[in-house]
């Protein structure tokens, strides 16, 4: 399979009055055609910033650095704004968190859908409208052609998110980034939107980055999973590897927070990770999870921890050896 997106040592710094905010610190991953990478992590861990960095949508003050940030072999940092905007919405598109505010209230759904296509393809309005209707039906919107004349405020949140998905698909992109596409929606709608996304991704064989804080979502949709904490990937691997054999104490902690039917005893406490996320403002040294980690030692604080590879595709960021990590996982599972 061809490699779609390569990210190597991506960092994003945002200068603030109190000092530099190191929002993303050395993130590496690749995405192949037809593959879904799930990125999980708590709010504020840098998931969204990572996706904005890839799309080139960071706030003006933010500083993006990367050894390599290539889309279809083309280094994105070398492109002019004009060339970058040729790719955005065309080869690579994004679905945002808040469907309620992500559509322009002053224009109809139809206008906002077709302008993407008119921008990137040489088609007439009629063809663009046909494509919009086709995609709206694809994402499960009935009476699509009459919906085109409606304004965003006339649609429910679920419908708007479907419109956003259709908008992302207008040009048939190779890569789609979905940034918590379901957080703002009702639980019943969430499942529909997610299965819709998975279906479409499979049908068009796109690469997908799915950002969420919901591990259940990741387990059912993603092929590979990256666990993000304090601006870093702390573990990355296939779904089976992450869920069956989590290595990093943070991943283990996250998994312990999910109740499993039949396994978690009635009335027992759900897992939780004590402590809070460290501030990312100012210089960082050592493992950033150490202040919440049950296994933390002096050594954790002395120097930055590198990713340890466990074989193709699975690596984790911890000073502990893989045997000890396995041991910890088993003990944690027993209690």
């Amino acid at each position: 399979m061809t490699v779609l997106l390569e990210v190597e040592n991506l960092t994003v710094d945002i200068p603030l009055a109190a000092g530099d905010l190191h929002a993303v610190r050395g993130v590496d991953f690749t995405i192949k055609k037809g593959e879904t990478l799930g990125i999980v992590g708590e709010s504020g861990c840098g998931k969204s910033i990572t996706s904005f960095a890839i799309m080139g949508l960071l706030p003006q003050s933010a500083i993006r650095k990367a050894q390599r940030l290539a889309f279809s072999g083309q280094e994105l940092a070398d492109l002019t704004q004009e060339q970058l905007s040729d790719i955005r919405g065309n080869k690579m598109s994004m679905i945002f968190q808040e469907p309620m505010t992500s559509l322009n209230p002053s224009y109809t759904i139809g206008e906002q859908l077709i302008e993407t296509l008119l921008r990137h393809r040489k088609v007439n309005r009629k063809k663009a409208v046909e494509r919009a209707v086709f995609l709206l039906e694809k994402v499960g919107i009935t009476a699509a052609s009459s919906r085109l004349k409606q304004y965003p405020h006339q649609l429910s949140g679920g419908l708007r998110q479907r419109v956003m998905i259709a908008m992302g698909l207008m040009c048939g992109p190779d890569l789609i980034i979905a940034d918590e596409p379901t957080t703002a929606l009702d639980v019943t709608i969430q499942a529909q939107i997610l299965s819709l996304l998975a279906e479409i991704q499979n049908e068009f064989q796109m690469g997908q980055i799915l950002i969420t804080h919901d591990l259940g979502v990741i387990a059912s949709v993603a092929h590979r999973v990256a666990v993000m904490y304090a601006g870093q990937f702390v573990e990355i691997g296939s779904v089976t590897e992450i869920f069956e054999a989590p290595m990093h104490p943070y991943t283990q902690g996250l998994l312990a927070c999910i109740p499993i039917p039949g396994k978690t005893k009635r009335g027992s406490f759900l897992g939780s990770i004590p402590g809070k996320v460290p501030t990312l403002i100012g210089d960082q040294t050592g493992c950033s999870f150490a202040n919440r980690c049950t296994y933390a030692k002096e050594a954790c604080l002395l120097k930055d921890v590198d990713m340890v590879s466990l074989g193709p595709g699975h690596s984790y960021r911890c000073v502990l050896s893989s045997e000890i990590c396995h041991q910890n996982a088993r003990e944690a599972a027993c209690t």
């Binding site: 460290p278 150490a290 002096e298």
Partner: peptide, 12 residues
């Protein structure tokens, strides 16, 4: 005790 010390040092 050491762990507690570490925690305190880190959280700061």
């Amino acid at each position: 005790t050491t762990q507690h010390g570490i925690l305190k040092k880190i959280s700061g």
